[in-house]
Write a protein that binds this DNA or RNA. Structure first.
Lengths: 149, 149
DNA sequence: GCCGAGGTTTACGTTAACGTAAAGTGCTTG
DNA sequence: CAAGCACTTTACGTTAACGTAAACCTCGGC
């Protein structure tokens, strides 16, 4: 009764596009994770999908959340860290100055982390180059000097 | 007999510098990890320090190994992955073609990983920018519109 | 009415990467 | 020589992030 029938007119103005919703399995396949993972993220406070009866219904917002979460994970952030940012982001509109300051600190922190990772990636890239060229050298050496019978 | 006693003349030419060794605690502080971590890495086959009696003696090579290992970790690689590369690197000189091919595959894999991470970092950076500017907006809003009484 | 597909809860299991505590070794310093 | 410090081994504990299994709904289709 709340907004089930609210398909009439969205006050956002334009396109009624993006009105899609997703089932958990659907979302799971789309991001190559298991439903278990998605439920776990919810349990950890990273997602809060609508409930239709007992079943979870995911909207665009949830999908974006999941995407950001997985990206954070790939960058080595813990779920706790990710949650911290995400939750503060949601609490922003009515956030007090202290909270916002804290948020800015966290962001600076993450940023520093990213910087170091960039440097690490550059260095690692060079390492891989070195190893690869050495490997190719040895390989060509093998070509010239075939295995002993 | 292979190269154990080869302290006489290094064919590399120059400086006999860098002949330092390190204790485990020393190394630990220098990389801000605990001795336990270093022993663990050894147990996992990532390090193989010399032994003076019962005590571990680390040389430059070990120090570099540790540095690379920690860098890999910061980039989210598992110890198993790191070991795989490191061990193959060591086994290279007498490696057969199949092994070397496999090494190249792994390297390509890691490289792809790094590429994705680079993209992730760029995107995450943008996200952080957005969140930060939104936060600053709200903050300035708080200044103009002081808390009710 | 039954069945299979997908969804749900509950709860115990697992893996990686260490932490931590106990008990012993070895050197050197007052 | 006793004390202290750094190191050692052994072994159990811990945390994060899920995996896996069991047992239950529920809905569209035949």
């Amino acid at each position: 009764m709340t907004q089930r029938t609210a398909n009439a007119a969205a006050p956002t103005g334009g396109l009624p596009r993006q009105r899609r919703t997703y089932g958990i399995g659907e979302l799971a396949k789309m991001f190559e994770v298991t439903p278990r993972t998605i439920r776990f993220y919810e349990q950890e406070g990273l997602l809060a999908p609508e409930r239709r009866g007992q079943t979870r219904i995911y909207h665009e917002k949830d999908r974006v959340r999941l995407k950001l979460t997985l990206r954070g994970k790939r960058l080595g952030f813990s779920l706790a860290e990710i949650r911290e940012v995400v939750m503060m982001y949601d609490a922003m509109p009515d956030g007090n100055a202290r909270q916002l300051q804290r948020l800015l600190e966290i962001l600076a922190d993450k940023r520093a982390n990213l910087e170091r990772q960039l440097e690490d990636i550059r260095l690692m890239h060079k390492e891989l180059d070195d190893v690869e060229s050495r490997a190719r050298e040895v390989l060509s050496g093998l070509g010239a000097e075939p295995p002993r019978h």
